[in-house]
Design a protein around this nucleic acid. Structure first.
Lengths: 138, 138
DNA sequence: TGTAATCCCTACTAAATTGATAGGGTTAAT
DNA sequence: ATTAACCCTATCAATTTAGTAGGGATTACA
């Protein structure tokens, strides 16, 4: 299941990408337009800023803006920040690898083999999709 | 994240597929061999039996057996029984479709479009993989 | 016929995660 | 100075997960 955090985060990024002028976009505006609890969204955008995907401007007339062109913002990065590891088991995670407690030899593990395939296919989607793809109104 | 339930279930199915004689396999044997808490595994195999993937024989010398050839048991079915919907959001689920509360028009939703792609890619893996693929010791 | 082995079923529980809310601190424009 | 905005921490209720407990029903076989 995709968490609300990720879903809201993706919607917010899309919103910001679509309203790209040189002015930052305020949390309140996004929250209202996308029907997201404002305080919850604040935390999400904060995470995205700390990860380097968003920049922010404080104080009056402040808000959030993209640090790169939408076409440069890959879903792999966004998903890892919002949802965590892309792999369904730690033992096939590229960025967060961890050995399983059970499983003496993961090369012989049937689950391992299957999950590598799932990971690769999902990764392929995320690598080939950018925020520009999400925000194009097709 | 893949749940322990699913992981254990897949391992157990693999184990049963590998020991396919005409004799049913006991929960205790699988639990010991695969390092799975026995009582927990009992519940999992029960679920698989109720879904029609496994059959069972009660009483002494009882146990579980596959209802079909491993090559006939598709991962789509197994995963749906163990893990639930394959889609990451209900609004792109083929078998458990549900509209989102937010999201006035899902055809315009950027998340929707992305998640359809993920679903299709994952589905492709599960459709092309059977228990036979998991249990082949390659 | 009795006993042991085995699946079957329900209920319970502790820990973790998720989705939020609360309350205020800090910064910047006017 | 005041106001509008981001920033940060703590807290909380609901849900899910992983597992345990306890026993019921069924079957093989001595």
């Amino acid at each position: 299941m995709l968490s609300k955090k990720t879903k809201y985060g993706l919607k917010a990024l899309t919103y910001i990408a679509r309203s790209q002028g040189d002015k930052p976009v305020q949390v309140a505006v996004i929250a209202k337009s996308e029907q997201i609890p404002q305080k919850f969204l604040e935390g999400i955008l904060l995470t995205l800023r700390k990860s380097g995907i968003l920049g922010s401007k404080k104080g009056k007339h402040g808000g959030y803006y993209l640090r790169n062109e939408p076409s440069e913002i890959k879903m792999t990065d966004v998903m890892r920040v919002l949802e965590g590891p892309i792999a369904m088991v730690p033992c096939v995670s590229l960025n967060y690898y961890e050995k399983c407690d059970d499983c003496p030899d993961e090369n012989l593990c049937s689950v391992h083999k299957l999950m590598i395939q799932v990971r690769d296919n999902t990764l392929q989607v995320f690598r080939n999709t950018t925020l520009a793809d999400l925000s194009n109104t097709n």
